[in-house]
Design a protein around this nucleic acid. Sequence first.
DNA 1: TTAAAAATGATAGTATTACTACCATCTCAA
DNA 2: TTGAGATGGTAGTAATACTATCATTTTTAA
Lengths: 224, 224
Amino acid sequence: MDFQVSFNVNNKLFVKDPENTDLGRQIVKNAIDLIYTLGFEQFTFKKLAIEIQTTEATIYRYFENKHKLLLYILNWYWSYMEFLVMFKLQNLDNPEIKLIAVIDLLTSDLPVNSGKFDYNKKFLNQIVISESSKAYLVKDISEINKDEVFKPYKDLCSKIADLIAEYNPNYKFPKSLTTTLIESSHQQQFFADNLPKLTDVNELNQKDFVNSFLKDLLFKSILI
Amino acid sequence: MDFQVSFNVNNKLFVKDPENTDLGRQIVKNAIDLIYTLGFEQFTFKKLAIEIQTTEATIYRYFENKHKLLLYILNWYWSYMEFLVMFKLQNLDNPEIKLIAVIDLLTSDLPVNSGKFDYNKKFLNQIVISESSKAYLVKDISEINKDEVFKPYKDLCSKIADLIAEYNPNYKFPKSLTTTLIESSHQQQFFADNLPKLTDVNELNQKDFVNSFLKDLLFKSILI
DNA sequence: TTAAAAATGATAGTATTACTACCATCTCAA
DNA sequence: TTGAGATGGTAGTAATACTATCATTTTTAA
């Protein structure tokens, strides 16, 4: 199996499309590595410029600021995730099995190969876990929301919410349950790594623990 | 009913205890107002100093940096919340009623009066909703965790987790469910305000909506 | 093929942030 | 009344988050 996946990430997120040039792809790839290594607060365009041996000015030609760059990376992730969901669900028709597949995706690492985008998927996963809420927990959210920068996230959520509604049309909170599952999958992984007393991780590995917690939460909530 | 509540907030969080002086209390009070108004990213000690007509140097005599000040404020909140939980649960012995009382607390505004601490409770609530995850989603979490700065949060969680275990001793994820409920209560309020399509808010007001969602989630999960 | 256009590099500069240092003053308590 | 502690005021530094300008290189289109 070998194919190219490509998404059109919202063009409000960049000044110049980084997918079109070597340098652009270098910027995104190394940004992922650096944000993972330093954390978003310590990450700067200056440090990134030094890393790829260019200048700040050049990076500013691609992205207005680091917040937009983070949004770009997350949008790429959410689009890829939605693609994976579609891909995994094809040929499945039992709603329960579909939902199990979704939870499995939410709690596993991204598959490594996706064509020319050799982003470090482990790092990308960790960024989503540790930094993604910083993309929306900002004072000017209503401004940036106008540019539809949360569309891929919303699309994924609405797809999952539809599966829930399919499973149990009477359940009252399909969307809120979906966002709770997604955000909780990040939180619980973060807590399991860093503040394990806030979780019930045990001898199981973390991914399995989060997976079983989320399944329990989901299926008890939507039980018919 | 009139009484004084006082908590000893972890002394690793300040250089000089702000509760002991007028200026110290001014700093905390106005920090809450400013963080609410500007958001944590735009909030600076310089702006706070101008607001209360003092200098940056003075504020640095109380707090090492703005992250510690945020932690201080959140610790105060979590300690107060634990006090409220204890207070509300006294004389209750039905585990279900206790849990309902907890959810009600998590989804309502703080009571206005608590002695000399005339912090703006509405603002404090919003700060907890919008900024609290920034306190732990940092690269040096394991460092700051050594100073027990998350103790009040952990204590509250463990208290609630105990109630869940009391209700259903066989439920496997009392702690993870607790953190999910708390964090989800913030998230859903934030989404209801800012990205309502990610939720199922309807004609109900937001607090009622979040309240009923969380109760549904909780009691279905721990059903015996 | 050549000239124009676009992309990048190099350097510099500004305002703000996140501090630290130092000294003067003021106050309150022994 | 003296002296310790709290605060004010000023200054300074390194880093951040940009913007501007100009030179060079690369691409493209006529």
